[in-house]
Design a protein around this nucleic acid. Sequence first.
DNA 1: ATAATGATTCGCT
DNA 2: GCGAATCATTATG
Length: 205
Amino acid sequence: MTILSAGFYCREDTVQIAKELIGKVIITEFNGLLTSARIVETEAYKAPEDKACHAYLNRKTKRTKTMFLPGGVAYIYLCYGIHHLFNVVTGPEGAAHAVLIRAVEPLAGQEIMLRRRGLDKLKPQLSAGPGVMSKALGIEKAYDAISLTEPKGLIRIADAPVLPFSEIIAGPRVGIDYAEECVDWPWRFYQRDCPWVSKIRKKKS
DNA sequence: ATAATGATTCGCT
DNA sequence: GCGAATCATTATG
């Protein structure tokens, strides 16, 4: 099992990386509890031109500074005061690019994930959604900016064959209605016919 | 359908 | 510094 190296993340084309991340495997190991899950849904965010990106126009703040790091580290932040969202920083140092992981398919340590979520049965609700999949894997914002490329790291991502083109679907990103002309950019990728992909949420009336 | 929830940011001073 | 508005969501009825 090969861990993806910095070379994979540091490329300039974040959208391409987001696409290639589908099918890769996230492994977390906190407190000796090992869990892993297959990525089935991602979104690309790319400053400065992307209005939906926190670092739009390269705004550098305490929160977004992680995104300016070289590719291969985690960017984790709190959303709606409740949910920890997990991103992978991409691109060279100084480029605020990142890929949001939105949904995963549980592999190893399913009992651990169920316990963390307070569920007793394996169903998409366990990890189909950016907030809940972080919770299932035990990811918290305290792990912001840690490396993903260390073989012994708390969080790492294992390589896997790239899915056939026909299995990957591109669409507009979710939950960024405020981003005006950027809302329709097809920067969301997910695996076709996969029950672990998050459901498209209906917009407010 | 909507309440819950808190870090972050922005516009003041 | 301070306070208000904002938000890449989820769970529940």
